[in-house]
Design a protein around this nucleic acid. Structure first.
Length: 359
RNA sequence: UGGGGUGUCGCCAAGCGGCAAGGCACGGGACUUUGACUCCCGCAUUCGUAGGUUCGAAUCCUGCCACCCCAG
C-alpha cells in the first residue's frame, strides 16, 4: 500500500522507511519543517536534516517531499505553549504536536496524497488485533515514546504505523548501517520537537517579557534571592536559582510559584515535604480507546507516569467527564501543573490528562 | 578611636607551623524527542593588608585596614 513516512532526518524514521520499502510498500518520504527559525543555529539544523532525508530517500530509491506546517504549529501548539508558560505552568508541547500536527495536519496531508497510512519513527506499537485499537509501549523500555502519543485517538491509530516500535535502538542502528543509510551514526535529537535543544530560559525570554521579583524561603518567608520572571522556572528546579550557602547548606529547589504576588518560593533539601504530593487533579482526559475504562464516578488501579522517563508509579484513578482524580501509592516529587500524567496497564497506554494541581 | 570579637573561592565553612577539606552556587559533560530532576567532571599557587620570626606560616609576632558586639 501507499505509505507516507514522516522523516525527521534521524536514524529511527530512516529505518522506518527502510523497513516499509523492503516490505514492498509504496513509500513516500516527507520532511516537515514546522519551525520558522529566527536565528541561524536552528535553521542550519533543519537544513542539515533535510539534506539527510534526501540522502536516505536516494539510497532507498523513494520519492521525497518537504512540507511546511509552521502556521499550524504556531497556532495549535506553540500558542498553547506560550499561554501555559504565561499562566505559570510548565507545558509539554510535544504531546500536542503529535495530536495536532503529526497525526492530524500531517495525516490529512498524507491521505490527500492518496496514502492509506502515515508512518513515523516513534518507539511505540499498535495492537490492531481487537476492537478498539490499542497503543502499546515501544519494545525497548529505554526508548519507549508512548508517553508522547497518549492524546492519539482511534482515527490516528487506524492510519498510523510505527515500524521501529518493536526494535531496540541497537537493532535500528545495525539495520541502518547494514543498509548503508547515511544517518546510521547520527546522534539522537533532543529538545522540543521541531524546535530542538536550546538554552530554554533564553528561548522563552524571546517570547515572554521578564518580570523580576523576589525569591523567598517557604518555611520562614525570608528573602533569599531574586528571580528573573516566574515563567522561567518550574517546580522542582534546582539550577539557575543562583542561591547557595545559606541555611543548612543543602540544595535549593523551586516549590511554589505565586503569580499574584510575583513570588518564587524555594525550599532546601531534596526531601523537603513541600516537594512531594500524593493527590492530583488532571484536566482534559483523553483515552486511546476514546472512552474511559470505567464508568464516570468509578475508580480503577493502574500505573502512571507524571513525566517522560519516569518509572511506572502505581496509582488509583477516578474518572469524571472532564477530569481525573489520581492518587499515587507513593509520594510524587514535583508533580507540575501543565505536565501530562499518562496512564498504563501493563504494556498498554490507556490515555492521560494534564495535571492541574497536586497536594 | 575604651573593651571584646572576626576577617580563607560568589555564599557557608574546615584548617591551630609543613606546604588550602567539604557543601551550596557557578561552568562543562552524560542522560533525554517537553520543562525539570539525577549523575560525572571542573572550580582559591592562595588565605583583609604590610612587615617580621622560621628551613618552612592561612596557621606565631607587630603595624595598618574593614566589619561586628559591648560599653558609650
Amino acid at each position: 500500500m501507499r505509505i507516507v513516512v514522516g522523516m525527521s532526518g534521524g536514524v529511527d524514521s530512516s529505518v522506518a522507511a527502510l523497513l516499509l520499502k523492503r516490505a514492498g510498500h509504496e513509500v513516500i518520504g516527507v520532511f516537515m519543517n514546522n519551525w520558522e527559525e529566527t536565528g541561524e543555529d536552528g535553521a542550519c539544523t533543519a537544513e542539515r536534516d533535510w539534506v539527510d532525508v534526501r540522502a536516505v530517500c536516494d539510497v532507498l530509491d523513494i520519492p521525497y517531499y518537504a512540507v511546511n506546517f509552521a502556521k499550524e504549529y504556531r497556532e495549535r501548539v506553540f500558542a498553547d505553549f506560550l499561554a501555559e508558560y504565561r499562566a505559570g505552568r510548565t507545558p509539554n508541547p510535544d504531546v500536542l504536536c503529535n495530536r495536532e500536527i503529526k497525526f492530524k495536519a500531517f495525516l490529512d496531508f498524507a491521505l490527500q496524497l492518496g496514502a492509506e497510512r502515515v508512518a513515523t519513527g516513534h518507539f511505540a506499537r499498535i495492537d490492531d488485533s481487537g476492537a478498539p485499537l490499542r497503543l502499546l509501549r515501544g519494545l525497548d523500555p529505554a526508548k519507549d515514546q508512548s508517553y508522547f502519543l497518549y492524546m492519539l485517538g482511534q482515527r490516528a491509530l487506524r492510519h498510523a504505523m510505527f515500524p521501529v516500535g518493536g526494535m531496540t535502538k541497537a537493532q535500528i542502528r545495525a539495520a541502518a548501517t547494514a543498509a548503508g543509510l547515511p544517518t546510521s551514526a547520527k546522534r539522537d535529537s533532543t529538545g522540543v520537537c521541531f524546535i530542538g535543544e536550546r538554552d530554554f530560559k533564553a528561548f522563552l525570554q524571546g517570547f515572554l517579557p521578564a518580570q523580576p521579583g523576589e525569591m523567598r524561603e517557604l518555611n520562614t518567608g525570608k528573602l533569599v534571592g531574586r528571580h528573573d520572571g516566574l515563567m522561567y522556572y518550574t517546580l522542582g528546579q534546582r539550577r539557575g536559582l543562583g542561591i547557595g550557602g545559606g541555611g543548612d547548606g543543602r540544595r535549593w529547589f523551586v516549590v511554589r510559584k505565586d503569580l499574584g504576588q510575583n513570588l518564587l518560593w524555594v525550599a532546601q533539601g531534596d526531601d523537603h515535604p513541600s516537594l512531594y504530593t500524593t493527590e492530583a487533579e488532571a484536566s482534559q482526559p483523553t483515552w486511546i480507546a476514546e472512552q474511559p475504562p470505567v464508568p464516570y464516578g468509578e475508580s480503577f488501579a493502574c500505573t502512571a507516569r507524571y513525566r517522560y522517563r519516569q518509572a511506572d508509579q502505581p496509582v488509583t484513578v477516578t474518572c469524571l467527564p472532564d477530569r481525573l482524580r489520581i492518587t499515587s501509592d507513593v509520594p510524587q516529587r514535583a508533580a507540575t501543573p501543565g505536565q501530562s500524567i499518562v496512564l498504563y496497564r501493563g504494556e498498554e497506554c490507556l490515555g492521560g490528562a494534564i495535571l492541574e494541581k497536586a497536594w
